[in-house]
Design a protein around this nucleic acid. Sequence first.
DNA 1: CCCATATTCAACCGTTTGGTTGACGATGGC
DNA 2: GCCATCGTCAACCAAACGGTTGAATATGGG
Lengths: 128, 128
Amino acid sequence: MAWRGPNDSRMDDKLDLTFQALADPTRRAILSMLLEDDMAVTDVAEPFEMSLAAISKHLTILTRAGLISQEKRGRVKWCKLEPDAMKAASVWMQGFGQFDPVNLDAFERFLEDVLETGREGDEREGGR
Amino acid sequence: MAWRGPNDSRMDDKLDLTFQALADPTRRAILSMLLEDDMAVTDVAEPFEMSLAAISKHLTILTRAGLISQEKRGRVKWCKLEPDAMKAASVWMQGFGQFDPVNLDAFERFLEDVLETGREGDEREGGR
DNA sequence: CCCATATTCAACCGTTTGGTTGACGATGGC
DNA sequence: GCCATCGTCAACCAAACGGTTGAATATGGG
């Protein structure tokens, strides 16, 4: 991945979109729901006590941030989690933490591999 | 750490503050500066083309999010990075990726295995 | 063809955000 | 004691945010 350092303005714009998208509890809840499975817009909206239009707006914001993708099949629009943007933000944050940057490089390579092959590696046990 | 699951409202509030604080490029730049060293408010403000009052507000937001702390010594108020809050947000995000920093050792073993054998390990069961 | 379903659009509204300016309280140096 | 410096406060502003409602635009089913 072309890492341009913490001052790349393109990355800055991307982080703006990502963090702003994550800064709303409804949107975070939506992301959690999509972790379980892809969902139609109407189904995403169902557990929330707000209008479908409001949820539609939230989904647009998540899409622009790259956190999800939406594909229309028939008259139903399916929402799918896209962890890429989250990964970028996560990597940015790691720079401030107590995590080992060497391992970071390794997991970036790992992620690229995973994302390219389309494999999702959910053998991760904790399952929250 | 007392992990209460992704629906703990206290954590939700904390994540709100954290992500909202991170959703502004000025504030992220300030955090980057503080990564190098502790700084006085005036010195933080110096490279930015906005008023001291504006920077002061940004610093208040960062403080309420727990991302920095401020200590007044004499008439100078020193700002210090506090990576703990960032770590909480980072951990939340990890739940969406294939990357698990808590389990980096296991991951490294897994990565070595993948790279050596070129094999990808488990197959996923059902597609979506 | 007609109707129900799925989703977005457009206009609107109150609140929050990110900035400004000017006045103000504290503190340290001479 | 005075003055310059450090930082915040208060009032204000435009723009963005998060929500609502009602109309509009597909699309699929009988």
